[in-house]
Amino acid sequence: MRVLVSGGAGYIGSHTVVHLVAAGHDVVIVDSFANSKPAVIGRLEALTGRHLPVHAFDLTDRDKTERLFGDESFDAVVHFAGLKAVGESARIPLDYYENNLDATFSLVRAMRRHGVKLLVFSSSATVYGEQAPLPYREDYAPLQSSSPYGRTKVMIEQVLTDVAAADPSMRFALLRYFNPVGTHPSGTIGEDPQDIPNNLMPFLAQVAVGRRDKLIVFGDDYPTDDGTCERDYIHVEDLAAGHVAALGRLTTTNSPVSVWNLGTGRGTSVLELVHAFERAVGRELPYEIGPRRPGDLPRSWADPGRAHAELGWSTTKSVDDMCADTWRWQSANPMGYEG
């Protein structure tokens, strides 16, 4: 299939591009480069051995989006593009609602006008909110979130569900990620946050490489084995493989909307991840315990049973793999894509 990947130069998008090409798909990338670096494209072409057409614009521009679909033919779309920082979304909520929703509206309108029926959407486990019981299951309702970022994911899931109800020929996959970490095992592509990392693994990697003085662990008095929060960390390579599996499933399913959790089904605490990263680096890393961070849940992890059963997909990478691959990327690229 010829697949348009929105946000294909980003962290998860770039890894998924490699997997799509390996699965035999022709890939075209559209990316505004607001949260990614143009340098990733050359690395993707080296990894895949393929020229990858790139369109550099923001999908909120409906005219450019329409022109892209008019000029080129696509069989499917994998949609990653959007703003994604939870904390930032609380400071500039209008920007998040405008960007994430408008980009999706623009994209889906163009798809419908040009007969493109298949869409894999990058959703998030944040849609389960604070009340869902563990492990998180796809049939939980009502969906909710404590951040504007998360609420855009809830809203987009509802928008796509409504579009599919109005046009049952559409096929949408809603992929609810848990905590993506790790990098391509070559160390060629990885996670390169624009500013101070919002997530644990890239911050820890920057501490290890000397860009940050120390890690602050937000609270050690949670009701967990070591007192720190537990999360379901999934290797980005496993996550990328899940997108390829979901795209394949859309070609055979009769369901207009399919929802799958992509996670390991296991919780790993902050301190467990820190110590795993220390094993990868070969030395202790500086950290200190700080106060709890508002909004952090003690535990969250997936029930990935539906993805196992319906996609034939399961995770293959361990926490030690996640840390070793991240360190290979960060040590080879201490300043990310810029050095």
Rank of each mutant, 00 (worst) to 15 (best):
R212E: 14
V217Q: 04
A324K: 05
D58A: 06
V40R: 02
I196S: 13
G13L: 00
D75A: 10
T264L: 10
W329V: 01
N100M: 06
W329H: 04
R249F: 15
Y177V: 05
T104G: 02
I92D: 05
S122D: 07
H308W: 15
G267C: 12
S6W: 00
V40N: 01
P142L: 11
E310Q: 15
N261P: 06
M1A: 15
E272A: 15
M170K: 06
R299E: 07
F69R: 01
N199P: 06
R293H: 13
H19V: 06
L94Y: 14
R328L: 12
L285V: 11
R91P: 07
V163D: 07
A332I: 09
V86W: 03
D213S: 15
L297P: 04
R2M: 09
Y96L: 04
S258H: 08
K317G: 04
L262K: 03
D321M: 10
T326H: 06
L200P: 01
T104C: 08
D192P: 05
P286V: 11
H55C: 07
D58G: 03
G13V: 01
L94P: 05
R109Q: 12
R62P: 05
A85P: 05
P304Q: 09
S300C: 13
V54W: 02
S255R: 15
G187L: 06
T326N: 08
E138I: 10
A173M: 09
L273F: 13
T60S: 15
A110K: 03
S169I: 10
R283T: 15
N100R: 02
T183H: 08
K64G: 08
D139G: 12
G305R: 13
V159Q: 10
A280I: 06
V120T: 04
T315H: 04
F121H: 05
A39C: 09
A76R: 01
W301R: 01
R43Y: 07
V3E: 01
A165R: 15
P202Y: 07
Q144S: 15
H15V: 05
V181C: 12
F172T: 03
R62Y: 12
R212K: 15
D195P: 05
L311T: 03
D303E: 14
